[in-house]
Amino acid sequence: MAGVWVLVDHEAGNVRKVSVEMLTRARQLARELGQMVSAVFLGSGYERARERIARFGPDRVLISEDPVFEETVTVAQVDTLEALLKEEGPEVVMGSSVPFTKDVLSRLAARLGVGVLADVVDLNLEDGRLVGTISAFGGATTVRAALKSSPQLILVKPNSFVPEEAPSSPEERRVSATVSELGRRARVLGRVVQRAQERPAVEEAAVVVSGGRGLGGPEAFRMLEELADLLGGAVGASRAAVDAGWYPHTHQVGQTGKIVSPQLYMAIGISGAIQHRAGMQTSKTIVAVNKDPEAPIFSICDFGVVGDLFKVIPGLIEEIKRRKGA
């Protein structure tokens, strides 16, 4: 059975938003192609994921909760997918364009001798051919690209599609895990949580509040965290702030950090050097606060305030609280 497959990105059954974004787009594409959508769930926690997956309308879910997926690194997923692909021959396999899933599709592509499109932000059928849109060079260039091989492996960036529910009662098929000797050669010894994830990840958040050199030190990031929490967003940081050790580099936005494209990006005390713009310029709305009226960030923002961020941001926080309370 050909089809469009979506590799569900989840953490112990907590389904990430990117997965339902992919399921939404997969459903639309499958309709045009006259094919079925299968969600592939590997790892523990399917009961937790079940209802959320079904709400986004796959025709079928392939499930393996074998502990090997948590005990080993990458290859067991590749081995299992390879076996399933051989059996079923889907036309398209979509995964989230985030670190660990990139490894899975990269290895799968190498093993099958096919290509993989990474960092896709839009996916359309053009004369029957699947064409991915990729935002290159930090959004400076928009590229249309396609695959010359099959199955078509596609990595989709979070926030690329708007999730639309279409509840279904998918057929659930339990499949067995396949693990090669290679798959046993890399093991997970443990997982360590160093910080509670009370905020969304920078790459997935609809709102990102970022701080730069103008913050003057790590303390001011508490203020940005409060603002981010009021807006339901994540906190980002410029390279200058990260290099100064004010905020963890996992939050760095820019060419040598993460590339984000949220609904709202707030650049606070960030001048907007090209290396930073490369990480955020495709954001839908950009707001800037900076004391330097000549800061380049003001030339790309939708709304800017020239002023002291230590006055403007507390004022904004108070105002948001007041309006929310009203």
């Binding site: 592509a109 001798g113 096919v114 290509g115 993989v116 499109l117 064409v131 935002s135 290159a136 959004g139 400076a140 260039t141 928009t142 590229v143 249309r144 690209a145 396609a146 695959l147 010359k148 091989s149 310029q281 495709t282």
Partner: peptide, 10 residues
């Protein structure tokens, strides 16, 4: 196995 069909500056 990938092919750039076209591109344009944003």
């Amino acid at each position: 196995r990938t092919e750039v069909l076209s591109f344009q500056p944003r």
